[in-house]
Design a protein around this nucleic acid. Structure first.
Lengths: 192, 192
DNA sequence: TTTCGACCGAAAAACGAAATTGGTCTTAGT
DNA sequence: ACTAAGACCAATTTCGTTTTTCGGTCGAAA
């Protein structure tokens, strides 16, 4: 194990520790010392690896999000038509995001009105939009989605992200969502 | 003008005054005396007509919402197919809600975590759901929406409300939404 | 290179006092 | 009888101040 990978391993262990304490205490109530203690390090050691608490938080959000994206891409790769890909993508994102967010109940309520969190959110939105964009573009070229002209594709992707974000919020309220998720995906892909 | 209608006229004038001050000061910063003064009445007179500040707030939200619903129903009535009705409904709601909410910038940020506001919101959601339900049912019976069985209709209506709520939040962020609204409605009604 | 304890200043919590404010009640004019 | 208003109360909020906490830095040591 060379220095670089060891460095990466420590960073990883820190964000894994951070995940555990953020799950328990939320963003504001966890201190750097909480994270340090959970990671078995001194507080200032954290600053050797990350330059701020925000950076740690961002790293752990990004990590969770990446895991979800990986799942989505996996399930997307299992189907062939673009329409099916889109449906799989949306269904996976809705279920997985809900699952992940439910593990951070306190954090969920702390994401409003924060400057850099807005930026982070926008970043994730953009990532998601580009993935959807890929699917749409492919389907458009194959003639599967026959009524967008090419310039509308990116707006359509944007709208789909908005729909997913909205449903995330809304679906968190109730329980019997499996059938609803099915309805959502069918609706978006094939219309009412 | 008999007593009953005069009573209604005063109540109306009170909520019109309430609208103006809520627009300027938001929910928490406007006092009952602000409303009373704006309405040209004494504070306790308000309590003769409404039994609490919450009730006034609720009345004015309901009033604004009703106005939006009226506009939506009007534009829905101008088209004949159920698919077109659904598109008109969604487009009108999205544009009108955005327009109305933008007049109450402070109130917008004050609606979180409040017990009775959640109830009120749910009430409006239900109202909206029932309108969509009507459209869906009619279209289903006419065979326009061919792939829901009847029991799924209410879930579909619920999902559509969720989509609208989500897009309300999301679309408030940007400006060039006319084309996006078009994309949304086409997507929901006819699929990608 | 990596870790840590000691330290700093800014931000936030704690807290008690004072001012507001939602709501009631009695009174008065019509 | 009906409508309106001012005085009043209790509860919440606000405010000014003190105290504590916490994110972040630094120098030393392993």
């Amino acid at each position: 194990m060379n220095d670089l990978s060891k460095d990466e391993a420590v960073k990883k262990s820190i964000i894994e520790a951070a995940k555990r304490v953020f799950q328990k205490w939320g963003l504001h109530k966890t201190t750097m010392e909480d994270i340090a203690h959970e990671a078995g390090k001194g507080k200032s050691t954290l600053y050797y690896y990350y330059k701020s608490k925000d950076e740690i938080f961002e790293a752990m959000i990004t990590d969770e999000f990446s895991n979800i994206i990986i799942k989505a891409k996996t399930s997307v790769s299992k189907v062939s038509s673009s329409k099916e890909k889109l449906k799989k993508y949306i269904a996976t994102m809705l279920t997985e995001i809900k699952k992940t967010v439910s593990v951070y109940p306190l954090v969920k309520g702390e994401l409003k009105g924060n400057q850099y969190i807005e930026k982070l959110r926008k970043q994730l939105d953009d990532k998601e939009e580009s993935i959807i964009m890929e699917i749409l573009k492919e389907g458009f070229e194959k003639g599967e989605f026959n009524f967008f002209n090419e310039t509308q594709l990116s707006k359509a992707a944007n709208v789909i992200v908005g729909t997913i974000r909205g449903l995330e919020l809304y679906l968190f309220l109730d329980i019997d969502d499996n059938e609803k998720i099915d309805i959502v995906t069918r609706m978006i892909a094939e219309g009412i």
